[in-house]
Amino acid sequence: MNTQSILRDLVGKKIISESHASLILEYETAKPLSVHWELRYMLYTGILLFNSGLGMIIYENIDSIGHQAMIAAIALLTAACFYYAYQKSHPYSHDEILNSNKLQEYILLLGCVSFLALEGYLQFQYELFGSRYGIAVIIPTILFFVCAYRFDHRGVLSMAITGLASWLGLTIAPLSVVYGNNLTDLKILNSAIILGTLLTVTGWLSERLSIKKHFSSTYIFLGGNLAALAAISGLINQPYKVAYAVLSLAFCLFFVLNARRKQSHIFLLIGIIYAYITVTYLIFFRISENAYFSLMTVYLTVSSIGVIYFLLNFKKILGTAR
């Protein structure tokens, strides 16, 4: 089955004419191969490698390299990147901006990354901020938030959010939430829940108020994920189980409703998984170990089938359009 056979079939069914078919065939044979995404991945990988390589070089040679020259070079690069990004940017708008310049968003990302390297260098070598680490973290965070909104860049927004979390001593990167944070510590746990909730509310508000609507899923995803996982951890490790269970389920409900509103299925998936963990824990944490195995097998089988049924029919159950 190839282009020709499909076109022949369409002509046979009188959907398109003979000449129309040859037009499409001509287009298909002449069409150039698009390497758009290949180039973007290469550029992104390049920025990643550049960033790690630079950090490692500075760290390994901190005693031997000419500091002024190094700092001047990184500062120059940072400034050049921001200048380019600013030059090629469109004026601020509450809406999503489609920038026609193909490199601007990557140059901005490179600028942000080298700003971090610059700041780290200054702190490492000259203790610019002394022991006030908070300032060292919050400065790039504020800069990144400003850049994210000014230049309409979701990647920089993600970096800003990780910076904000880091300022509070938290790791928010989705795959590191569980192992990166010491969630058995009540203080960390509660600040994770509070930060996560605030970010989620910010996301919800930005959609409500139509200020950078397309940022909302980044806020909700990073914040909600942190808060929900922290709540589950609280449920398992802390007293006041009811409070944490309610919180966790509230987030799951919010995720599912959000998924329904935005047709975003990743929210549906994490909402269901977190709710499943919460409910399962609530049912089993009091049952003695003797009855565990047989009850567990029955419960898990039946409930999983239930979830599968829900997933197969969620469009009908939630009344979504698609």
């Binding site: 960033n51 973290v137 790039p140 509070l168």
Partner: peptide, 11 residues
């Protein structure tokens, strides 16, 4: 590319 609290400002 995100920041991590362990780095304490040195990223």
């Amino acid at each position: 590319l995100g920041q991590d609290p362990e780095t304490k400002g040195i990223n």
